[in-house]
Each structure stands twice: as structure tokens, then as C-alpha cells.
């Protein structure tokens, strides 16, 4: 046995839910400890991740074009896109908060789309890469995804509080598209199996 070997090539499957190791020779379908379905790698990992990624990519376009919220002030409507809201924050001198929103609602989703795309290409074409570095990239992508919901939560608070006779804030169609992008990319990251990166490396 080599010093560093994959559990699968040594005849073990790790339960995804509870971490229990099962011998492949036992041909079990479900985990003896937690009863969840056993699989050595996430089933159809690449196909599922690709499907989720492509749909979130198409939703990302309306999410950025359409207004995410509209401020109605005495009859006159003022529509804001995601980028417009950030520009307004920075213009009014709230630079740190503007930066925070910029990172959470533009940088994170777009780099997530690109990052998962690269991971898919890498796993599909069996690129010989520094697997440790790419696994760290995957980990960062999986970790930061949920923070993009920030914009959606902020809008729910604004819509609720700013509702007086003259002034009103209404959520726009981009909010639905953006929430869908965040959720779909979270599912995409969850479905991608980083162990595929390691399986493809010829010399470890």
C-alpha cells in the first residue's frame, strides 16, 4: 500500500452523510450506520453541476439588467439595478458598505460562476493541476455562496420598513432572478465532487 492512497482504490467507500467507511467488497447499497444511500462519488456529479451552472448563468443576466428594487417617491418611480444600488452607496460616501455589497452581490456570484465552470472543465478534461490548490478554490466557492443572499435580505427589510404615504420601496423582478442564481449556484457547488479532481491526477 502506498503511503498516500485514495480510499476508493483501497476498497473503501465513505458515507457522504455520516463519514462511516464501508468496504466495497461488501456491496452494500446503504450505510449500515445512518442508512443513507452509498456512493463512492456524488452520482452524476458533472452532469448535475453543469445543468445547475448553465441555468444560473442564464438567470444571472436578468438579475443584473432588471431593477432589483424601485423607490416610489410621491408618484415618481426610481428603479435601481444591483450595480445602481452600489454606485449610490459609494456616491453618498458609504464606501465600506458599498464595497461589502459589491463583493457580496457582484464579485461573489460572478467569480462563483467562473470558478465552478473551471472546476467542471478541469474534472471533465482531466487536467493535470495542483489538486490541493483547486480543492481550496472549491472550498472557498462553497463557503462564500450563501453570503450573496445579503442583497435579498436587505431588500426584504427595506420593502417592509419604507412604506409611508408618499414614499415606498417595491422589490423588482431582478430579486427573484438573483435569489434563484444564489440558490442554484449553492446547489451546483454542493453537487460538484472535489474528489474527482484527485481521481484524475496521474502522479500524486
Amino acid at each position: 500500500m502506498r503511503a498516500k492512497a485514495n480510499a476508493l482504490t483501497q476498497g473503501f467507500i465513505r458515507c457522504h452523510d455520516c463519514g462511516y467507511l464501508v468496504k466495497t467488497v461488501d456491496h452494500l447499497l446503504s450505510c449500515p450506520r445512518c442508512n443513507s444511500h452509498l456512493h463512492a462519488r456524488h452520482p452524476h456529479s458533472l452532469q448535475r453541476t453543469t445543468a445547475l451552472l448553465v441555468s444560473s448563468f442564464f438567470l444571472y443576466i436578468p438579475a443584473n439588467i432588471f431593477p432589483i428594487m424601485t423607490v416610489n417617491q410621491f408618484g415618481a418611480g426610481d428603479a435601481h439595478t444591483i450595480a445602481g444600488g452600489i454606485v449610490e452607496l459609494i456616491d453618498s460616501g458609504m464606501i465600506p458598505i458599498g464595497m461589502l455589497v459589491l463583493v457580496a452581490s457582484i464579485l461573489v456570484p460572478s467569480s462563483k460562476l467562473i470558478g465552478i465552470g473551471l472546476l467542471l472543465l478541469c474534472a471533465h478534461f482531466r487536467w493535470q493541476i495542483n489538486a490541493r490548490r483547486w480543492t481550496v478554490m472549491y472550498r472557498v466557492i462553497a463557503f462564500v455562496g450563501r453570503w450573496s443572499m445579503l442583497d435579498i435580505f436587505m431588500i426584504s427589510i427595506l420593502v417592509d420598513l419604507v412604506d409611508f404615504g408618499g414614499i415606498q420601496i417595491i422589490a423588482g423582478p431582478a430579486a427573484t432572478a438573483f435569489a434563484a442564481v444564489v440558490i442554484l449556484t449553492m446547489f451546483a457547488a454542493e453537487n460538484f465532487d472535489p474528489r474527482l479532481l484527485w481521481d484524475n491526477q496521474k502522479n500524486l
Binding site: 465513505r14 463519514g19 480543492t135 472549491y138 474528489r195 481521481d199
Partner: peptide, 21 residues
């Protein structure tokens, strides 16, 4: 094959992200 038989499940562990035994 003999080797895997000799190994006891509970004596080993696998990394969830790189599958290292």
C-alpha cells in the same frame, strides 16, 4: 484483496474532499 480483508472499517478514515485513506 487480502489486505482489504485484514483492514477493519473502524481503523480507517477517509477525507471527504480528497478521499485520502
Amino acid at each position: 484483496h487480502l489486505f482489504t480483508k485484514a483492514m477493519n472499517n473502524t481503523n480507517y478514515d477517509a477525507c471527504p474532499e480528497c478521499d485520502l485513506l
